[in-house]
Amino acid sequence: MRAGSIVVVRNLVKRFGDLVAVDGVSLQIEKGEIYGLIGPNGAGKTTILRIMAALLLPTRGYVEILGYDAVKEASKIRPLISYLAEDAGTYRNLSGREYLSIVARIYFDSNVEASRAVEEAISISGLGERVDDRMKTYSKGMKRRLQIARALMTRPKLAILDEPTSGLDVFHAKHIREVISRHVKEGGTIVLSSHNMLEVEYLCTRVAFIHRGHVLFEGEPKKIKNELGASNLEEAFIEVASR
């Protein structure tokens, strides 16, 4: 990893044919931050996250992750990050433990490290003995918890989480928020997207309002609320989006 900001995005544009999904987005994320992208469906949040995860190529602009060019040095970025897709599925016929073990062995050279990562993931997921059951028997919430555990067990320098708590009940959502906070305290950095503005307000150190492919507003939740005279981020977003 090179010194400097964890994420640098400059004038990012992404087109799918005629559709402009992201239009001139610039942002910078520093080490130890939980950075939230908030906005309605189709705003461009997932596309920005996919470009950061080196899944998609920008049409224009520059993206740097952990000091590496996301286009030219994607293979150097992948071992250092982890990505949780919004609708990430599971392998129906594998057990949770088998899946975690396979992923851990991909990321870690040593079996000891891989085993440690699996045990940590089992603890994060809170699946207990059910971790040895086939994943097709899991509820939506259990699958989501397992995927979050998978994303964080590799101790990524940057975790990119698309709607991390979607499909989770309030208890498990709270547990995951605590896991995310702990991960950052241990030296990680997180960028996430969410529809749940209250969650973002509680969790994130900084947020960006995304609407129709543009960043409308960016800053610390408290400062945004003060600046816009809103009682919460939801009100602040509506205020900014309706301008």
Binding site: A53, A54, L55, S75, R78, P79, I81, S82, Y83, L84, A85, D87, A88, G89, T90, Y91, R92, V103, I106, Y107, Q147
Partner: peptide
């Protein structure tokens, strides 16, 4: 079908 390919493609594998 199970939406696992996208995750697989982010792993550090060629």
């Amino acid at each position: 079908e199970e939406k696992t390919l996208e995750t697989l493609l982010t792993f550090p594998v060629t």
